[in-house]
Write a protein that binds this DNA or RNA. Structure first.
Length: 551
DNA sequence: CTAGGGTTAG
């Protein structure tokens, strides 16, 4: 990295012919790519050889947008949007005007790294530079609205509007829209889109149906999913390995391992081949169901098919080992990894450390934490959260706070929540408020867990209006029945029954889903308070009837 | 250059 930033002015990376070749190795990590670059750049003139006004007709010395796009795509598929942006800036600096494809690549890579706002900026720039979007550009715009911002009205508008710009939505555009709808469970609407594309003579493929299957599987509607697979076969939209992986995942989760075996046994007949993800998915299901031995047998099977476990597969097995109370084994696999020439990843450490935490082996957690440093592995925010949790559980809350405040600690919302929860248990209200302040300052966005603790805290301090206010703010993050449970307990304990009735009436009016947890918490809270003996029982009955839509 | 799948924390 440093070699590149130190060279000023930096020559365009793409002026070196062999880089075009390099960019084909999209599976290469960005670091590997950068290493190649910095080596090549050492032989490159440090002066800027690129005149801003080339003589007409001469072959330009600087690279063509195609070449930049090739390289940007390589970084994009390596998940490195920072370098995509760097190249994008660079090409503009060298007066190499981005074409529609370049803008599309950059916007898409920003989406992949979850920066929808930045992607919008790229689209705006595209328009203001007078570059006309093509179908692919519009497709990424649909992806932005449907899969990231969930603004489906705008997504539909793009699909309709692109016709006027001389572009036709294609199977990718429609499949993208269907994906977005299915991700939020709007399956019937997705079928509506499918109808539209069929009417237009746009032929669906596996990408069109698979998101729908995914939605069914997420909702636990396995029978519907299986029926959809038959439909796909009937309309000549053959399910592929991804389709089957989703189905196998759902079946494994439901413990229906015989059916998984059946699907695997018939794969050749159906014309698809299991891959690493197929095996990993199945193995994870087996491990979670306690069938760790069977999972290890599958490891042998996949290797015999020429498929090799990757970090995820190994993580699943490590997790399985811990679940079978073999955390000591998992721990030594990590500690002694160099003996068998394996380099574990951060997630591998996180997995074993969190399992050790669960069984109270806090010393081992710290031991692995230091082992990571010895191996030169950088802990991530998950690691830190797990260690904070381990220290808190071990009763070393001061130590946890010290670690939290130390340099280099990557605090995310979970680390904050953990520390806040334990400090709250200890009655250190001052510190809790201080941490909540700090969270805002550090731009760590609170989530439902945070709001739950805040509601509890505010109620215990008698600040009921603030607690209710906190609840309404939490709705920006979506609906969480658990927060209502917190509010119920807090308000009943604080004898604010009138406030409780008001807020519950409002909740019912908004049409939020009332689950059994909320229902039970009300009954339990009233019983706990002893209200069942007096006239307040009528208030309780009133609310319960309200929930059941009797009133 | 554009679409879908598997692992870890409160």
């Amino acid at each position: 990295m440093h070699c590149l930033t130190l060279l000023r002015p930096a020559p365009p990376l793409l002026a070196i012919p062999s880089l075009r070749l390099l960019s084909r190795f999209s599976s290469n990590t960005s670091k590997a790519l950068l290493l190649h670059f910095s080596n090549l750049l050492k032989r490159f003139p440090q002066e800027n050889p690129y005149p801003s006004n080339p003589s007409p007709g001469s072959r330009p010395l600087w690279p063509h947008p195609y070449e930049y796009n090739d390289l940007m795509s390589a970084f994009a598929s390596a998940g490195d949007s920072t370098n995509v942006l760097r190249l994008f800036d660079e090409m503009k600096r060298f007066n190499c005007r981005p074409d529609a494809a370049c803008y599309t690549t950059v916007a898409n890579s920003l989406l992949s790294s979850n920066q929808p706002e930045a992607a919008i900026a790229v689209f705006k720039e595209m328009v203001s530079s007078g570059v006309l979007p093509d179908t692919m550009a519009y497709t990424v715009l649909v992806k932005l609205y449907a899969c990231y911002l969930r603004q489906f009205e705008l997504a539909y508008e793009v699909v309709h509007g692109m016709r006027d710009c001389g572009c036709k939505p294609d199977v990718v555009t429609y499949s993208t829209l269907i994906t977005g709808l299915c991700q939020v469970g709007r399956v019937s609407e997705a079928f509506g889109v499918l109808d539209v594309m069929l009417n237009e003579g746009c032929v669906p493929n596996a990408h069109t149906y698979t998101p729908i299957l995914h939605a069914y599987c997420t909702a636990g509607q396995i029978e519907e999913a299986e029926r959809l697979v038959s439909t796909m076969e009937a309309v000549n939209c053959v399910p592929n390995v991804v389709t089957y992986n989703i189905l196998i995942g759902a079946l494994s989760k439901a413990g229906r391992f015989n059916e998984v075996e059946n699907i695997l046994a018939n794969c050749q007949l159906k014309g698809w081949e299991p891959d690493v993800i197929t095996y990993s998915t199945y193995m994870d299901g087996l491990c979670k169901a306690g069938k760790v031995d069977r999972s290890f047998m599958l490891l042998e099977e996949m290797v015999s098919h020429g498929l090799y476990p990757n970090k995820v597969t190994i993580n699943i097995l490590l997790d399985g080992l811990c679940k079978r109370s073999n955390s000591l084994c998992a721990q030594s696999i990590l500690e002694r990894s160099s003996e068998f020439g394996w380099r574990p990843g951060v997630v591998n450490y996180n997995t074993v450390m969190s399992r050790l935490c669960e069984v109270g082996k806090y010393f081992s957690v710290l031991k692995l934490f230091t082992d990571m440093f010895k191996k030169g592995l950088e802990p991530d925010s998950w690691t830190f959260s797990i260690v904070v949790q381990g220290l808190c559980k071990a009763g070393k809350i001061r130590k946890a706070k010290c670690l939290f405040d130390s340099n280099g600690f990557l605090a995310n919302v979970v680390a904050y929540n953990t520390l806040i929860r334990y400090l709250y248990f200890l009655g250190e209200v001052e510190e809790v408020y201080h941490l909540l302040d700090q969270m805002t300052k550090e731009n760590v966005v609170p989530n439902h867990t945070t709001y739950g603790i805040m509601i509890e805290l505010l109620c215990s301090e008698g600040r009921f209006e603030a607690a209710i206010n906190c609840f309404s703010i939490s709705l920006d993050n979506g609906w969480s029945p658990n927060l209502v449970v917190n509010l119920v307990w807090g308000l009943v304990a604080g004898e604010k029954i009138y406030k409780l009735v008001k807020i519950l009436e409002w909740i019912v009016k908004q049409g939020f889903f009332i689950d059994t947890c909320i229902y039970c918490s009300l009954i339990k809270a009233f019983c706990w308070r002893g209200s069942c003996q007096n006239t307040e029982i009528y208030t309780l009955c009133y609310i319960l009837d309200l929930f059941l839509k009797i009133r």
